[in-house]
């Protein structure tokens, strides 16, 4: 079963790479942008999959990390354009590498703060508290006018990567794709590592994990920080894709969407977020093309998946989940 899952994963990744290359050759840059959106959302959902899939931590507040990553990109770029230092003489930057590191650090720190409080609770409390903290960040972004407040913050020119023309769609897609591959590899390594084993054990039987001398809280907190940092990285890319950051990246709908991506594809599966993102973005695109009321039908599709396709789409093809 694991073999079948790997084949599906490789197929999906090849497809995700081939489609935009072909579209770019055919002079259809719109489809390249669509594929970039898929890659970035898959990356964000892979981050969530670490907490949700491996650790069983149902975070309903990952939009906070996604948005903070986006604002890291937006704020650094805005200061670079205006040539004003951010604070204490630190200048802004248009360099993606610096922006990514900042986003990862900011997302990780925020996850550390939120996790330290939220992980004291479990179950429904955890779901609601992560949601509430994300709302707190959301309202802060709306009421703080320095960086656009409710209107958001435009990024006039896409940020730069050494040796690559990021203004063209295909090279930017390839950057996002490469990061997605790297993070998927990281996810696979993490899942197979001793840490990953402990994390999955904390989901399956917390008491037993504590009995062998591993404190579940610390394991979960580290996983939550890694998860938040990865989602923040995706947020920075998302801001660069849209050349725009706004509080909507921090909204609770965004958190819901990320959960949808993970569950749609299959919780805890390596290829789950990729499958989820592909299906979600294509559904959005095709349903949106057919009817203005596409969210109505999306809701019905999601209901169908929850009620009748447990284990997600990858689970439908590759068999039942390996863990419970």
């Amino acid at each position: 079963m694991r073999g079948r899952e790997a084949i599906i994963g490789i197929l999906l990744m090849v497809l995700l790479l081939a489609a935009p290359v072909v579209a770019s050759q055919a002079g259809e840059p719109f489809y390249v942008t669509l594929a970039t959106r898929i890659a970035i959302l898959a990356l964000a959902a892979t981050g969530l999959n670490i907490a949700l899939g491996l650790g069983g931590l149902v975070s309903f507040g990952h939009a906070a990390f996604f948005g903070v990553g986006g604002y890291a990109a937006g704020i650094l770029a805005a200061h670079a354009m205006s040539m004003e230092p951010i604070a204490f003489g630190i200048p802004g930057t248009k360099q993606m590498l610096v922006i990514w590191l900042t986003a990862i650090a900011a997302g990780g720190l925020l996850a550390l703060a939120i996790g330290a409080i939220s992980l004291r609770t479990a179950g429904v409390y955890f779901i609601m508290i992560t949601l509430a903290f994300a709302q707190m960040v959301y309202y802060f972004a709306i009421s703080w006018p320095a960086y656009g407040g409710e209107d958001g913050l435009p990024i006039l020119l896409r940020n730069q990567f050494p040796g690559v023309n990021t203004l063209r769609p295909l090279p930017f897609f390839l950057i996002c794709y490469a990061l997605l591959v790297a993070c998927l590899a990281f996810f696979a390594l993490l899942r197979g590592s001793r840490f990953g084993a402990a994390l999955q054990a904390s989901r399956q039987n917390e008491t037993r994990l504590a009995a062998v001398g591993i404190p579940p809280f610390r394991i979960r907190l580290v996983a939550f920080v890694i998860s938040g940092a990865m989602t923040a990285l995706a947020g920075a890319l998302f801001a660069d894709l849209n050349r725009f950051v706004s509080p909507s990246m921090l909204s609770w709908q965004m958190s819901g969407e990320l959960i949808v991506l993970v569950i749609l594809g299959g919780v805890g599966r390596l290829a789950g977020p990729v499958a989820g993102a592909i299906v979600y973005v294509l559904l959005e695109y095709f349903l949106g093309g057919m009817t203005e009321r596409w969210q109505f039908f999306l809701g019905l599709v999601l209901l169908g998946v929850v009620l009748f396709a447990r284990g997600g789409l990858v689970g439908l093809v590759a068999g039942r989940a390996r863990h419970g």
Binding site: G256, I259, L302, L303
Partner: peptide, 8 residues
């Protein structure tokens, strides 16, 4: 599952 279904 409850979160996803009620979100839908």
């Amino acid at each position: 599952d409850q979160v996803l279904a009620t979100f839908a």
